[in-house]
Design a protein around this nucleic acid. Structure first.
Length: 483
RNA sequence: GGCCUGUUGGUGAAGCGGUUAACACACAUGCCUUUCACGCAUGCAUACACGGGUUCGAUCCCCGUACAGGUCACCA
């Protein structure tokens, strides 16, 4: 068997989307698992919709995820160029279109957009789905000469056979059969400006770039029979197809660009402080399942384990809680330094915090519960509040009998400390127990509430120590004033 | 509407003719921590869309119904 070659072929009409990322990732895993090549080809034939930065976003975010390619526009390869506009300029598509034209497997269509629109309207009015009526499919030489003399623009259409069964064995779906009569008529392969349409360009490029397998989204499944027809017409070997199910939102609908129910762009996850390894792991579990019970895998393990036969046939639902969990699993594995690097930008940006040893200690308090970078901002809030405030439950607790005395004693003990560190603070609290005879919950809970303003939080003595004496005392005073 | 496809506990998701129908997340309880979180342990849910077949036996095979999704461009 020849070397496996697969590709991810984004169009730079948008940023890297979670669905695209998954397509890229599975192609990557498939290639690497089989010791093959993974190619990124830019399909930029829709000049009007290409957006600035789209191409860069695609590539940069793929790289961020850890999906590296063997050939593409940035590093070249033996099958370039790797963007279709450049290939168009080299006349690559024209050559194959001419071949089809010469064999009468395609023909020039001189219909104007207006004529086409009018025809489509008519068909719609009649209650049917518009399709090309084949008007130009049997033009006489005289008619053609006439149009040419007029200087009329034309597109090139592929002749679709009347009643032909087209079957392929899909890697994920199994045997899929279409009938050529269900294809919407003779379709365009060259637009009026001579630029190839998607279906045509894909066939030519996948052949020329020697793709062995085409793994793509299910939304392409109805393009496949058209493409197979063209492979056959051009006498090209048909690659193996696999159509992966779509990722759907919590309502079970296909993700649309405007859907706000989940975060869709890889860039956004990056900005929120998700870890690339965790995203890689999570995305892999969208529509694919490993053999065992384990769900956390490194990239290398995934490459090792990837099996295209385990691609799911039913749509993958985006499970946000799972993502959060997975990311936390990775956060916990970080070294303290890596963790702090992750979290620092958010502290600086959102809280104007200064990068110093104190900040690092504060941040570290929350390491094993942090789900994603930006979350640190809410987590550390007690250390950045000017003035604490108590909720109902805390107030109620603190208003119990004897709490004032406890807090007064605590305050005095803290103030008497020579060095304000966790160990001494612990001793200071213990001393209150000795002096007043309060203990257990009635000692620690008021202490916690009065110093941090919260009933729950990280280790008490570390928290107080990081808060500092002044802040701790101010908080205690405030709480006493509320009793 | 035509064509293509899917439907397993609250969620994600295994299973590929005979199982006590995994596992993970979530949730609950216990332990740990004088709190929370983390971790560990236990439990939870009366999960195979429905109706017909085929079979000694169907979650797994076939047909139909319902529901859901995809697609029908000079967009990719």
């Amino acid at each position: 068997m020849s070397k496996v070659r697969v590709r991810y072929a984004p169009s730079p009409t948008g940023y890297l989307h979670i669905g695209n990322a998954r397509t890229a990732l599975f192609n990557y895993l498939f290639a690497k698992h089989n010791g093959g090549d993974f190619i990124v080809r830019i399909e930029d034939t829709d000049i009007a919709r290409n957006i600035e930065g789209g191409e860069k976003s695609q590539l940069d975010n793929l790289k961020w995820l850890g999906v590296d390619w063997d050939e593409s526009i940035d590093k070249g390869g033996d099958f370039g160029p790797y963007n279709q506009l450049a290939r168009f300029e080299q006349g690559i598509y024209q050559k194959y279109a001419d071949q089809l034209l010469a064999n009468d497997m395609a023909y020039k269509c001189y219909c104007t957009s207006e004529e086409l629109d009018a025809e489509a309207e008519k068909q719609k009015a009649a209650g049917s789905i518009p399709r090309y009526n084949g008007k130009c499919s049997k033009l006489t030489a005289e008619q053609v000469a006439g149009f040419e003399a007029e200087g009329r623009d034309f597109t090139v259409r592929f002749r679709v056979s009347q009643d032909e069964e087209i079957t392929w064995n899909d890697i994920v779906k199994g045997d899929v059969t279409f009938n050529s009569k269900d294809i919407s008529g003779d379709f365009n392969i060259l637009k009026r400006d001579g630029i190839p349409t998607y279906n045509f360009a894909v066939v030519v490029d996948d052949h020329l770039m020697q793709m062995t397998h085409i793994l793509r989204g299910e939304d392409h499944i109805s393009n496949t029979p058209k493409q197979i027809l063209m492979y056959n017409a051009l006498n090209m070997e048909v690659p193996r197809f696999g159509h992966m199910t779509l990722i759907v939102n919590p309502d079970g609908k296909k993700l649309s660009k405007r859907d706000t129910s989940i975060i869709q762009f890889i860039e956004q996850y990056k900005d929120l402080g998700y870890l690339p390894e965790a995203m890689f792991n999570f995305i892999t579990l969208l529509g694919w399942s490993p053999v065992g019970e384990e769900e956390i895998f490194t990239k290398d393990q995934l490459i090792e384990q990837f099996d295209e036969n385990r691609l799911s046939k039913s749509p993958a639902k985006f499970d946000e809680a799972k993502l959060t969990w997975i990311n936390n699993q990775y956060v916990k594995q970080l070294t303290d330094e890596q963790y702090y690097d992750l979290v620092l930008p958010f502290l600086q940006k959102d809280l104007n915090a200064e990068d110093n040893a104190w900040l690092k200690d504060v941040a570290l308090l929350y390491k094993d519960q942090l789900s994603y970078g930006q979350e640190i901002t809410e987590l550390v809030t007690l250390f950045f509040k000017e003035q604490i405030s108590l909720d109902e439950e805390s107030l109620e607790f603190v208003r119990q009998e004897g709490v004032v005395q406890t807090l007064e004693a605590l305050k005095a003990n803290l103030q008497a400390l020579e060095t304000f560190d966790a160990d001494n603070i612990k001793a200071a609290i213990k001393a209150v127990q000795k002096d007043l005879g309060v203990k257990g919950k009635m000692l620690f809970m008021p202490s916690r509430i009065a110093t941090t303003g919260q009933m729950h939080g990280p280790d008490l003595t570390s928290s107080i120590s990081l808060l500092g004496l002044d802040k701790a005392v101010a908080n205690i005073d405030y709480v006493i004033s509320q009793i």
